[in-house]
Amino acid sequence: MIIGERKPIQEVLGMIAEHDKILIAGCGTCVAICMAGGDKEVSILASAIKLARNKEEKSIQILEQTPLRQCEWEFVDELKDKIETCDAVLSMACGIGVQTLVERFPKAVVYPAVNTTFLGLPEEQGVWSERCGACGNCVLDKTGGICPIVRCSKSLLNGPCGGSQDGKCEIDSEVDCGWQLIYDRLKTLGKLDNLTDILPAKDWSTSRDGGPRKMVREDMKL
């Protein structure tokens, strides 16, 4: 899922400084599960903003709503009435949610209250980590199901660099070396042979390097 983290309160207050009536729009999917922008976080942020504005003696009216998803037209349409009565929307979804609102409600002023950080999973309570860089041409079949693009700090495709030590990456003794993980996994699978083949230079054009991406499926079109 998409992992996000709420922006620092001061930054959020700065964005909405000139507004007196805002809607805080949460999202009930990814960012709710990673506890960055679900309905709970929406109400916490609302209280924090009210408190800060009361201190400044600048009152503010805050509406709250959390659709199931903020990245689909049909769900964001539920926000229509509230958006129309507010000066601005503070979105607690990922960057996709913010842009979905902008596209659906061209007149609305929308601010991001969350930093979208990566595509990953909750490893354990309170710990999330990255698993995929959406490179557009998956190589997990060759690397034992462990992604070299985002789990190796240098996105290497042909084995560990010289900085791998005791299972950790040269950038930080807290970061696992992605290639040690791949090695161990292939060893378990009895597939170390995979590591003797040279993987050719990657075609990055399917990744962000190819420009904004779009997928069209004629078979699915109405």
Binding site: K154, S155, L157, C161, I171, I198, P200, A201
Partner: peptide, 28 residues
Amino acid sequence: LTGDHQKFGNHPQSKNVFDLDSIQLIKM
């Protein structure tokens, strides 16, 4: 060479490239 990660250099905020790895570089 692969190259040391920029994290410990004097521009840790830079973007890195790693379009190729050292083995692909050699082949090229």
